[in-house]
C-alpha cells in the first residue's frame, strides 16, 4: 500500500476512484430517497443530458473556454507588469497597491451589469470579468517573488553595477517563477469563475448562459451537465499548469 502511495499513478488512480464512488453514492441516494430529477438529477440523467445536448454543450463550452483563456492571457500580461512595478518601484508600490486592494474587494458580479451596458451582452464582458478576477493574484505574486530575493543577492548585483532591468532578467524573474506558477493555478480557476458569472448575468452564449437558460426551463440535468463540463475544464487547465511548472522550474523543489 505504501509503495502504491509513493508511485506516480496513485495521483491519478485515487481521485478517479473517488469520483466514481461519489457518482455511485449520488445515484444510490437519488434512487433510495426518490428525489425528482428537477431537484437533484442522478448522474445517469446528467450523462444522458450530455449526450442529448452534445452540440449545444460543445458550442457553449468552446465559447466559455476561449473567453476565459483570452481574459486569462490579458491577466497574465497586466499582472506581470503591475507586479514588476509594485515590486521594483517604491512610488508604484505606495500609489498602486492600496488602489489594487480596494479594487479587488469590489465583488466582480456587481461590475458585470455595467460592462454589459458598455459593451453589450456578448463575449467582451465575460472576457473582462475573467481578466478582472485573475490579474490580482498574479500581480501580487510577481511582486512577492521580486521582494523575496535574498538581500545578499541584491547586494551582489548592485555591487556589480547591474541595471534594474538586468536585475529583473537575471534574478528577479526566475526567482519569481515559482510564485507566478502558484498564482497561475489560482488565477486560472478565478478566470473561469469570472467568465461564468458574467455569462449568467449578461451574455448570449457560454456555459453560464446555458445554465441560466436550462434552470429557467427546469431542465436541471442539462444545468448539471454544464457544471460538470466546467469542473472538467478547470481541472484540465490546472493539471496543464502543474505539468508546465514541473518542466520550467525543475530547479525549485
Amino acid at each position: 500500500m505504501e509503495k502504491f502511495l509513493k508511485s506516480k499513478s496513485a495521483g491519478f488512480i485515487l481521485p478517479f476512484i473517488a469520483t466514481i464512488a461519489l457518482f455511485v453514492l449520488w445515484e444510490l441516494i437519488v434512487i433510495l430517497f426518490k428525489i425528482p430529477p428537477f431537484n437533484l438529477p442522478a448522474p445517469s440523467d446528467i450523462f444522458q443530458a450530455m449526450i442529448n445536448f452534445a452540440p449545444q454543450l460543445t458550442v457553449n463550452a468552446f465559447r466559455t473556454l476561449w473567453t476565459t483563456m483570452l481574459g486569462f492571457v490579458l491577466a497574465v500580461g497586466v499582472g506581470v507588469i503591475l507586479g514588476f512595478l509594485i515590486g521594483y518601484s517604491k512610488v508604484a508600490y505606495l500609489t498602486l497597491y492600496p488602489l489594487l486592494v480596494a479594487f479587488n474587494t469590489i465583488p466582480k458580479a456587481a461590475i458585470v451589469p455595467l460592462l454589459a451596458i458598455w459593451f453589450g451582452a456578448n463575449a467582451i464582458p465575460a472576457t473582462l470579468t475573467a481578466f478582472l478576477l485573475a490579474f490580482f493574484p498574479i500581480a501580487v505574486n510577481v511582486a512577492l517573488g521580486l521582494d523575496t530575493v535574498e538581500p545578499e543577492m541584491k547586494d551582489v548585483l548592485r555591487s556589480l553595477g547591474a541595471s534594474q532591468l538586468e536585475t529583473f532578467q537575471k534574478v528577479g524573474w526566475p526567482h519569481s517563477l515559482p510564485y507566478i506558477f502558484a498564482s497561475l493555478k489560482i488565477a486560472a480557476s478565478f478566470a473561469f469563475i469570472g467568465t461564468v458569472i458574467s455569462e449568467s448575468v449578461a451574455s448570449n452564449a457560454g456555459l453560464g448562459y446555458l445554465i441560466v437558460q436550462a434552470t429557467s426551463s427546469f431542465d436541471i440535468p442539462l444545468a448539471f451537465a454544464a457544471l460538470l463540463i466546467l469542473a472538467l475544464m478547470g481541472t484540465l487547465l490546472y493539471v496543464f499548469f502543474v505539468f508546465v511548472e514541473k518542466k520550467v522550474i525543475y530547479w525549485a523543489r
Binding site: 545578499e152 543577492m153 555591487s159 534574478v171 526566475p174 530547479w251 525549485a252
Partner: peptide
C-alpha cells in the same frame, strides 16, 4: 570594481 562574498553564499538555484 568590487567582488563581494557574504556568510550566506547566495547562489542562483536555476
Amino acid at each position: 570594481n568590487v567582488g563581494i562574498a557574504f556568510q550566506n553564499p547566495v547562489m542562483l538555484p536555476w
